[in-house]
Amino acid sequence: MTDADLIAGIRSGDPRAERTLYDRHVDRLYRLAHRMTGDETLARDFTQDAFVRAFERIGDFRGDASLATWLHAIAVNVILNGLKKVTRIRRREEGMDELPDVMDARRTAEPDLKHRLHAAIAALPDGYRMVFVMHDVEGYTHEEIAASLGIQPGTSKAQLFRARGKLREALAEFAGEWAS
């Protein structure tokens, strides 16, 4: 089915069109949600939310971007807003004034470089982490990231650069490991 067929089918309520769209994109969206949340339940919830929202709003799809880009923009929005809510709830429950920042990753006793990197990625602000995960981990292009986040590709590049800079600072004591 072409994108045009899918859109027409979904708009007319054809369940096969809906399932086709779902099958084409669920893996990538679920992986992104899981990488951003680190939690299977949240990843499932956000993935489901994204598709429900997409089916409800298919009438708003204007064709400015591809159907895939439009769907991913909805998913990214769901994930980022969902993370904000989760963070607020966790702060209230744990009485934390602020979440650990990337510098805390440097102060942990975990010697393993890979674990330290993963901790540093988890400690990145959500926006930087989204760009980093989308580009360096999941292989999205800057154009795809920009369309999903509603920014310019140049801004995506700049944010990726800063994200990498923060990770580099967090791994400063391991400088040279990647030279070998």
Binding site: Y30, R35, T37, L113
Partner: peptide
């Protein structure tokens, strides 16, 4: 190094639950 080492960052441990989610 980032791309290689972060490739399995928060990768889903089990198969994606496609049918239950659908």
């Amino acid at each position: 190094f980032l791309r290689d080492t972060a490739a399995d960052y928060e990768l889903p441990a089990s198969e994606i639950p496609r049918d239950p989610m659908w």
